[in-house]
Simulated scan of single mutants.
Amino acid sequence: MSITLIKEHRCHSGRMAYYSHGSDAVNGEMKFGVYFPPQADRGEKLPVLTYLAGLTCNEETFLIKGGAQQYAAKHGLILVAPDTSPRGAGIEGEDDDWDFGTGAGFYINATRGAWAKNYCMESYVTQDLQAVIKDSLNADMDRQGIFGHSMGGHGALTLGFKYPEIYKSISAFAPICSPTFCPWGAKAFSGYIGSDHSVWKQHDAVELIRAMDKSQYKPVLVDQGLADEFLNEQLKPHLLEKVAAETGFPLTLRFQEGYDHSYYFMNTFMEDHIAHHAEALGCS
C-alpha cells in the first residue's frame, strides 16, 4: 500500500514522520504518524507499538504530547499513531458533536446507515494500517503491541483481545472499560451499530474478557487516575477489575492518586507502559 510523506522531524536521534494514504476500509484518505527510533536508520527490523488516541484527537496528538519517543528510542520500538476517524466523509451530522462522528470512530466497524461506508475503524487499524506497516515501515510483523488512552484505551483492549495473532502486548491509560454501560459508548454504539446490546458486547473489553479462553490470556497493564473527571460515569475501571478477579485474567490495574484524564497523567507513566511492551516484545 503506497503512502505519501507529509512532513518529517528529527526526534531523540530518530525520525518523526507523518503520512497519508488511501484506505479501502474508510473509503477515503487516512493519516498516521510514525516514530522511527535510531535503530531503524541502521536497517534493523524492529517491533511496532500502535497507539490509539481518544476522543477529539488525531494522528499528531499523542506524538506531540505523550513523551513516548525517548523510551521508544531506548528500546528500539517503532511507534505508529493513526487518526481517530475518517475526515470529511460528507456524512450529515459528522461534525455536530465532539463525542460522535469526526474524531470519535471508537475503533469499531459501523453497520448503520451512512456511517457504514466510512466509519470502519476496526478494519482500518487491523487491515489497512497493517498493510502499511508491512509494506512501508520495515517492521517485525511478529512483534507488535497496542495501547491507547480513553476511547483509544477501549480500542487497544478490544482489538488486542480480538486479534491476538497481531498484537502480542496490550496496555491502556484511563480506558473506557465497558462502553455498553456508559454514555459515550451508548451514544457511539447506538449511532454506529444500532441498539442490539448483544452486538455491543462484541466491542466491550469487560465482556470480551468474560468470554475469552484462558489460553489467550496475556498480561495487561492499565493506569487510571483517581482525580479523573470521567472516572465513575464513563470509564468504570471497577468493572474491569471485577471481571479480572472473577476470571483470573492477568490484569495489573494501577490507580494513581491525584492524576486526571490529561496527557500530563499519561506522560508521567509513559515509561512504564513502553517498558511493559518492550519486555513482552523481546526488546533489548
Rank of each mutant, 00 (worst) to 15 (best):
A156V: 09
L157I: 09
L157M: 13
L159Y: 05
G160S: 11
G160T: 12
F161E: 05
F161V: 05
K162G: 01
K162V: 00
Y163H: 15
P164T: 01
E165I: 00
I166P: 00
Y167Q: 09
K168A: 08
S169C: 07
S169T: 11
S171L: 03
F173L: 02
F173I: 04
F173W: 07
A174E: 06
A174V: 02
A174P: 04
P175R: 00
I176K: 02
I176A: 12
C177G: 11
S178Y: 01
P179T: 09
P179L: 06
T180D: 10
F181N: 14
P183M: 08
W184I: 06
A186N: 10
K187V: 11
K187M: 13
A188N: 08
A188H: 03
A188I: 13
G191I: 02
Y192R: 01
I193M: 11
I193A: 02
I193G: 04
G194Q: 05
G194T: 01
S195R: 11
D196T: 04
V199Y: 08
V199N: 11
V199R: 13
K201I: 10
K201T: 15
Q202R: 15
Q202W: 05
H203E: 03
H203R: 14
H203V: 00
A205C: 10
A205M: 08
V206P: 08
L208F: 09
L208K: 09
L208Y: 06
I209Y: 10
R210L: 07
A211Q: 13
M212Q: 07
D213W: 06
D213H: 12
D213T: 01
K214Y: 11
K218N: 06
P219D: 12
P219R: 07
P219M: 09
V220W: 11
V220Q: 08
V222D: 10
D223W: 02
Q224M: 13
G225S: 02
L226T: 15
A227R: 04
L231Q: 02
L231F: 13
L231G: 05
N232W: 00
N232Y: 04
L235C: 12
L235D: 10
K236D: 09
P237R: 11
P237A: 07
